[in-house]
Amino acid sequence: MFEDTHDEHVLLTPGPTPIHPKAQKALMRNMLGHMDPEVFALNSEIQNDLRVMYGTEEGAFTALLAGTGSLGMEAGFANLVEAGDEVLVCANGSFGRRMAEMAARYGAKVRLVTAPLGEAINPADVAAHIDGVNMVAVVHGETSTGVLNPVPEIAEIVRHSGALFTVDAVTTAGMEPFKMKDWGVDYAYTGAQKCLSAPPGLAPIAVSERAFARFAARRSPTPLWYCDLDGLKDYWVEHTYHHTVPVNLHYAFHAALRAALEEGLEQRQRRVRQMGRVISRTLEPFGFSHYVKREAERLPTVLALRLPEGFDDAGIRKALRQREISVTGGLGPTAGVIWRLGLMGESARPAPYRKLMVALSDLLGEPSLVGRFDDVVQQEAGELALS
Rank of each mutant, 00 (worst) to 15 (best):
D4N: 15
H6L: 07
L12D: 10
P14C: 11
T17R: 07
R29C: 14
M31E: 15
M35N: 15
V39W: 13
F40W: 15
L50F: 08
R51H: 13
F61V: 13
L64R: 04
T68I: 13
G76A: 12
F77C: 08
V81F: 11
A83F: 12
D85I: 09
V87L: 08
L88F: 07
L88D: 14
A100H: 14
A104C: 10
A108Q: 14
I121W: 04
N122Q: 01
R159T: 00
S161F: 05
T166D: 11
V170Y: 06
T171G: 11
G174Q: 08
M175Y: 07
D182M: 12
G184H: 01
D186A: 09
A188R: 00
T190L: 14
G191N: 08
K194M: 01
S197P: 00
L202M: 05
P204L: 06
E209H: 12
R218S: 02
R219M: 03
L224P: 05
Y226V: 13
E238R: 15
Y241E: 12
H243K: 13
H250P: 02
Y251T: 06
A252Y: 03
L257T: 04
E263C: 11
R268L: 06
L283K: 00
A296K: 07
L299N: 05
T301V: 02
V302N: 00
V302M: 12
F311T: 01
D312H: 12
K318Y: 14
R323N: 05
L331I: 13
P333L: 15
I338C: 06
G342F: 02
P352Y: 00
P352A: 13
S361H: 07
P367W: 09
L369V: 02
G371V: 06
G382N: 06
L384Y: 09
S387H: 11
